[in-house]
Structure formats: structure tokens, C-alpha cells
Amino acid sequence: MLDSLRVSLWKLAFRLFPAYRGTGGRITHIEPDWSHVEVELPLSLRTRNYVGTIFGGSMYGCVDPIYMLMLIRRLPSAYTVWDKAAEIRFEKPGRDTLHAEFAVSDAEVEAIRESLSPGESLDREYTVELVDDEGVVHATVEKTLYVRQDRPEGLVGRVRSWLGR
């Protein structure tokens, strides 16, 4: 019950946040542990470009923050996550609603945690496709995220970090 309320509040926050709202994208599903997120981008007056297809900025904008937020939500607070780079390849014009699915597995989170010691960082690459209802790819986005462990995990690590040791 509490998990579904949190998910509903996150979806509402995305709908209300001006920067995301402006993309025209909608979050349609969030797993309570943020391991899976689904987004849809309809062709509408807000997303339509001059030639009547989905604006490329809307395609990128609706997927831009998702992987970063997923890792922020899945990793302990001892980690910093930032978008570092992105590349988008437009395959076909979007003439219908497009969908994107994001996944960050438990194994991926564990691999990040095992790879980093306090003060160390790494880059992780993720790919997401915007597809139509038939599964035809309209755009492919590759995201590079910077992940850093700022301090040791756990209460003892946080106290030591706070004390400057």
C-alpha cells in the first residue's frame, strides 16, 4: 500500500515538474524499487514539430533523466550520480505514440557497489529505444552516467565522513 502511494506520488511529481512536463512525455509505470520504469510520448500539439512528427527534443527530453533517477533511487546515499554524456540516433519520424522501457537490475546495482571504494568513480553506459506500438524503433538514446562513492556506506561510514576521518 505504501509502495503504491510512493509510486503514485512520483508519477504525479513528473507530471507537475515543468521541465519534464514540457517534454510531453508521461511516466506510465515505476516499480516500487525503481528497477523498471516505462515512459510514453504521444504525438500531440505539445510534441508535434513543423512537419507533423514528434519533435526530436521531446524524444530526448522524455528519456533524459530516467536512468540517473533510477540509480539515485537504487544506490545508497553514499553515492553521487550525474549524467555525463548522451547520444541520440533518430531512426524514423515519430508519427504515433512512442514508448520506452528502462531497467536497472539488482546485478547492475551490486556491480556498481562492488566496483567502487570511497573516493572512486566510474562511468556506466545505458541504452534505451523509443518504439511505437508495433515495436519499430524510432530513436535510440545512449546515456553515460558518472557514479562516485563519496563516503563509506552504513552508519559507521557516515559518522566517520561527518567527523572528517
Rank of each mutant, 00 (worst) to 15 (best):
G24I: 07
L41T: 02
W34G: 09
R89G: 12
S161G: 13
G25C: 03
L116Q: 04
P42T: 03
F102W: 00
I112C: 01
D96L: 07
D123W: 12
A111Q: 04
E125K: 14
G94A: 09
W82F: 03
V63E: 08
G57W: 10
I112G: 00
K11M: 14
A78P: 01
L12Q: 15
S58Y: 05
L163N: 10
F102D: 00
A13I: 05
P32C: 10
T23L: 01
S161W: 13
V109E: 01
L12P: 10
G164P: 04
D132N: 11
A100T: 00
Y146E: 06
M70K: 02
W82E: 01
V51K: 12
V156I: 08
H29L: 15
S35N: 13
T127P: 11
A139E: 03
L16H: 02
R6I: 12
D33P: 05
G157Q: 13
E134M: 08
R124M: 15
P65D: 07
G57S: 07
V128S: 00
Y126C: 12
S58D: 02
G61A: 01
F102R: 00
D33G: 08
I54D: 05
S44L: 09
I72P: 07
R89C: 09
T140L: 03
I72F: 06
W10A: 15
V131N: 09
S8I: 09
H29K: 14
E40Y: 03
V39W: 09
G154S: 05
L75Q: 02
R124P: 14
E120C: 10
T80A: 11
E40C: 07
E38C: 05
L116P: 07
H138P: 06
Y20R: 08
R151D: 12
V104P: 03
G154N: 03
I112S: 02
E134G: 10
I72V: 15
E142G: 11
G94S: 04
V39K: 06
L75K: 02
S77E: 04
L116H: 12
A107L: 06
V141P: 05
Y126H: 11
A103M: 11
H36N: 15
T97F: 10
D106N: 10
L145I: 05
T53S: 14
G119F: 10
H138V: 07
G164Y: 02
P118F: 01
T80F: 12
L69T: 06
D64N: 10
R113Y: 08
E114M: 09
D150H: 07
R74E: 03
